[in-house]
Design a protein around this nucleic acid. Structure first.
Lengths: 238, 238
DNA sequence: CCCCAAGGGTGATCCAGATCACACAGCCTC
DNA sequence: GAGGCTGTGTGATCTGGATCACCCTTGGGG
């Protein structure tokens, strides 16, 4: 099946190749079947907003492919990115469960597919299948943990360089090579990195220079090589 | 029933006067009875640690009376207080559900009672009673919301005065009088307030002076009067 | 009664980053 | 190829709080 933006659509959760890896996709046969019925799938272009901070929750989106940027913005226009979501994540879950407005805005960073599940159908599913409710609780508590990581980073790490080092480390753990160094594609702008660690574009730029000079990282085009985890760890706890 | 520290012990959840108000205490008769069997109650002195950041989760504590300070500390010894918990809150829930170590330290700020529920018993209860699982999900998502508030405060509000104003506003909403002003008992030290908003003792001291001078607040002994919410709101979004 | 610890007030200094200001590179469209 | 737009690099300046230093009050215990 061919879709817009050159993506393959994954139409059936039960036969989805990623099923095993994703906490909520990997339900029992019964529940999975039910999930399949109540979801509706769609493909979104880069820049699409799945939902916007402050909206009343219509339902959740299970991300099948692509990356999503979750952010929150103050009235004065200052923005922080709280998370970059990967496939398998359930977006908007907290808002739906607690029936508060969405607390973040979610924007596609690249073309991707997501399954929408309306609020009522989801709640019905949860009442029917305790296993699903437990999964949801697990996902919520996982979300909570990342939120806490964020709090620790924002509240405890004082200097931008500390936070920056921390961020690089978290990236590097996701993609470490056998020789200890790690290599990854840099898809965020300096501005966006600034919004993650709570500093300005210029400071991020200067941090990159500084870290390059210190041989901590290396940049060729859009590829970032992290050369020395230990040195970064020393910066974090300094 | 008389207990240490001059507290009345609430021994039976089903007859507890606070039952209605507390999300997890107010279960159906069956589930409540079961809850009553698996819990063990205890009274703690001021300063007691219910659990400490990094410990493997043994179970949850349902706070019956007293106030609890939740905090996290960096290796260098910098501390932030992430929440002051009131009766009815379930402490350690996320750790228990996700089986990660406790992400915060919880310390009694005054003598109080808490019910302990061992991890296994709780999980068993959740499997047996879907309603309980849903309550837990709700509580988790509520926790998540307050965590997000914290993130917004730490990440978006740049200046200490903004954060301070925000904190005062949140206190004031909890205790607003009919005439618009609000009055509350100040139980935190300047140091602790600093740990909430991420600044130093001295700065908090100066902020109090400044706000007193501007007629925003008034202090007599341990009583804090918030005189003008609108003015505070203006500081927050300035 | 004195002492000491904990909490609070306030001045002086200093510096890391925010802010402002350019300059430049890549890439699109017309 | 000119213009415009987005993202980046890097100097110069300015400033809000952290930090240090000291003194004051309060209250409890020996």
């Amino acid at each position: 099946m061919r879709a817009p933006y050159g993506l393959n659509i994954l139409d059936n959760c039960l036969t989805c190749p990623n099923r095993q890896d994703h906490i909520f996709c990997n339900l029992s046969l019964q529940a999975g079947q039910r999930l399949n019925e109540i979801k509706s799938t769609a493909v979104y272009p880069k820049g699409a907003m799945l939902f916007i901070e402050g909206q009343q929750p219509r339902g959740v989106f299970v991300l099948c492919s692509g990356k999503v940027k979750l952010s929150t913005t103050s009235r004065e226009g200052k923005t922080i990115i709280t998370k970059i979501s990967d496939p398998g994540d359930i977006l908007g879950l907290n808002a739906v469960i607690s029936n508060h407005p969405y607390e973040v805005t979610s924007e596609m960073m690249e073309p991707g597919q997501a399954n929408f599940i309306p609020r009522d159908s989801l709640l019905q599913l949860l009442r029917e299948f305790p296993e699903a409710a437990l999964r949801v609780a697990q996902q919520l508590s996982r979300n909570y943990y990342t939120a806490y990581e964020e709090i620790r980073t924002l509240g405890l790490a004082t200097s931008p360089s500390e936070k920056f080092a921390k961020l690089l480390l978290s990236w590097s753990t996701k993609a470490t090579q056998n020789d200890g160094s790690s290599q990854l594609r840099l898809t965020l702008t300096h501005e966006e990195i600034g919004e993650i660690i709570g500093t300005t574009r210029e400071t991020v730029s200067r941090l990159f220079s500084e870290f390059r000079k210190k041989q901590l990282v290396q940049i060729k085009g859009a590829t970032l090589v992290i050369r020395s985890r230990p040195a970064l760890e020393k910066i974090v706890q300094s």
